Amino acid sequence: MSLNVLHYKHQGRAQWGVVRKGIVTPIPGEFETTADFIRMNHIETLSALTGPAIPESEVEWLSPVTRNQQFVCQGANYRQHMIESGMDPDAKTFNMIFTKATSCVVPADSPVVRPQEVRFLDYEIELGLVMKRDITSRQSITDANLHEYIAGAVIVNDYSARDIQIPQMQFYKGKSYRTFGPVGPYLCLLESRDIPTLRRLDLTLTVNGAVRQNDSTANLVYGPAETLTELSGVHDLYVGDLLSTGTPSGCALSVPSPGKQKIAALLPEAVKWRMFMNVQAGRSQYLKAGDLVEARIASPDGLIDLGVQRNRIVGEAA
């Protein structure tokens, strides 16, 4: 059975603990990185852990993915999100991969800072998968052996500055501002029997209590096994690294249809991007200071529950 683990700070000390019904049981040992924690702990042992406990309300959340780990992402990995991103899902036959700067990783309850130069700040709830073993050569990864490669799951919110990402064609830059990568609160460790549930988790994101995104991982276009197989032929992945699997539809971003994009391609660059910016300016869904974004991922039966992220949007200090 899956097990939620929290990386936290208590009495000035960073620790890891098992979380059950709002109570944290500290895990003995010092583990500075996610990789250290995963290598030195096994779900079977942690499931039997007992001892003194701390109310979760008395600890400070830390990210369960530490900043030394790689942050690899999939883009446009739900059919409806492809459409709202201006892509033709029947023509896009490739897995879009990019990375975020690890300096954007923050705890799940951190404020998200909207930089002064960013007008169009968007949200993207995503299922994150944390690596269990190194991949340094081409591998054939299937649903049957995926449990050998995935240690657990986390909530990720891939905050994005659309006016940087799209006109400048800068995924890395537009998605890597500091605080743009909250992770957690929990690292949900998985047993082999839990792996099939990764394809039937419900994702829900609200802004000020109103639902903006609501979908199931059943609708992922490229699943974890085929994605890791592809990535294994490209570059090395290591224990504790994070793969964020893409976001459903419902983002603030509005992009013209493929047909309109073909027409826009004939326009001068300045005109094309001025039109894009004017369209985005009419979108009230973009985040502003004071907004509260909440993200939840859980299985319908509640056996896997990754907790709730809560991020208040704040303006960058002058």
Rank of each mutant, 00 (worst) to 15 (best):
Q69M: 02
F31D: 04
I97R: 09
P89A: 02
R67I: 06
E56L: 15
E117M: 10
Y78K: 06
P52H: 13
T66C: 05
R79D: 06
T33M: 08
V72A: 05
G29Y: 00
T33Q: 09
P52W: 08
A108E: 05
F71N: 05
T66Y: 05
P107N: 10
E30Q: 13
V112E: 02
P111D: 14
R114A: 03
T102I: 06
T33A: 10
M96P: 00
E44Q: 12
T50E: 06
T93K: 15
N77E: 10
E84T: 12
L49M: 10
P28E: 12
D90I: 12
F37T: 04
F31M: 08
R79Q: 11
R67D: 00
Y78I: 07
L121S: 02
N41Y: 03
L62P: 01
M96Q: 09
I23V: 15
L49Y: 02
A108S: 15
A91N: 13
P64Q: 11
P26I: 04
S57I: 14
G75P: 07
S57P: 06
H42Y: 02
Q74C: 11
S103R: 12
M40V: 01
M96T: 11
C73V: 04
K100Y: 13
K100C: 04
G51S: 06
E30K: 13
C104F: 04
A108H: 05
F31I: 10
S57M: 11
I83L: 07
G51H: 05
H81F: 00
A53Q: 13
Q116H: 10
E44C: 07
E58W: 10
P64A: 12
G75N: 06
P64G: 13
Q116Y: 00
L62T: 06
K100R: 15
P28H: 09
T99M: 13
V106F: 00
M82E: 13
L121F: 15
D90P: 08
P28N: 08
F31C: 07
H42P: 02
E84A: 05
V59A: 07
E44S: 10
V24R: 06
E56C: 13
F94Y: 15
R114K: 15
P55Q: 07
I54R: 05
P55R: 10
E56M: 13
L121C: 12
A48E: 13
L49P: 02
P64F: 07
E117R: 11
Q74W: 00
I43Q: 02
V72L: 09
I83T: 10
F120D: 09
C73T: 14
I27Q: 08
L49K: 02
I54P: 03
A48C: 04
L46P: 01
A48W: 02
D36S: 15
A35W: 00
P111R: 11
P89Y: 00
G86I: 07
G75R: 09
V118W: 01
E32N: 11
S57L: 13
I54H: 04
D36Y: 08
T93Y: 00
V105D: 03
V24M: 14
E56V: 12
V105P: 01
I38R: 01
Q116L: 11
D109T: 07
